[in-house]
Amino acid sequence: MTGFERIGGTPPITATTTAVGPRDAGNAARTAMATIGDRVLAWSAQSFKSDGAAGATWQGRTGLPSSFTPDRAELARGGDVYQLRALTGELAQGFGATPAQEGALGRAIEDFARGVALRFNALADAPTDTMLGGVLDALDQAVASGAGDGIGGVTARIESAATMVEKLNR
């Protein structure tokens, strides 16, 4: 995301998604991953016509209330259905990231989202604990990893969780 895009038309996601301390890498990573999981589950629930139990469990475990509604028009356009670019831009701006750091963060976020989407959609008919368990464990382990501060710590935590989810999907 360029500075012009950041100033442009995409509004902030919500105040709660990135309302953490300015350098609190653990909370920022947790909030970002919880947001991504919530968005993936919203799409999964809509696609598989589920009762939303997985989304409610996810929100209860992560503490992040859902405010996301899937946009079929965005899907038809082939756009950023999980709004990952906006999430990346918000985090990068909040931590004062360089363009290279923002790029690394964006790749980590995309890897995590891809792994979570694969897992959640493949297990859409499975019991909620089976569907979410490994991903929630990966999220918790990555956040607690002590990966450092600042944007590098956020990126490292998300990369770690993405790697764990990728292993779950094998």
Rank of each mutant, 00 (worst) to 15 (best):
A42R: 04
T98N: 00
P70F: 08
R119N: 09
Q46A: 10
G60H: 06
G103E: 02
G37A: 11
R85Y: 10
R114S: 14
A122V: 09
S66N: 09
D111H: 09
Q59S: 15
G37L: 11
L41I: 11
G89P: 09
A53V: 11
A34Q: 03
G60Y: 03
A56C: 14
R77K: 15
A86L: 12
A108P: 02
A122L: 11
W58C: 11
F112L: 03
Q46T: 01
A73D: 05
V116C: 08
A45Y: 09
F48D: 14
A34P: 08
Q83Y: 12
A76W: 04
R77A: 14
S47I: 15
R107A: 13
Q46V: 04
N121H: 13
V81K: 03
D80R: 00
G106I: 09
P70R: 05
F112D: 00
R72P: 09
V81W: 07
Y82S: 02
R77S: 13
F95I: 09
N121Y: 06
F120N: 00
L118Y: 10
L84H: 05
A56N: 04
R72D: 08
Q93E: 11
G103M: 12
F68Q: 06
T98S: 12
P99G: 07
G63K: 01
G60I: 04
G55H: 08
N121S: 10
A76V: 12
A108G: 08
A108H: 03
S67K: 14
L87Q: 02
R77M: 15
R61M: 14
L41V: 07
T35I: 06
Q93M: 00
Q59D: 15
D51M: 11
A73S: 04
D51P: 14
W58V: 08
G103S: 14
N121E: 10
P70Y: 07
A34N: 10
F120W: 00
G89W: 03
G103K: 06
A122S: 12
A86R: 14
A56W: 00
G89M: 09
W43D: 01
A53T: 01
G37P: 01
G55L: 13
A97F: 12
S50A: 12
G55E: 06
L105K: 07
G63Y: 01
E74K: 12
L87A: 06
A108F: 01
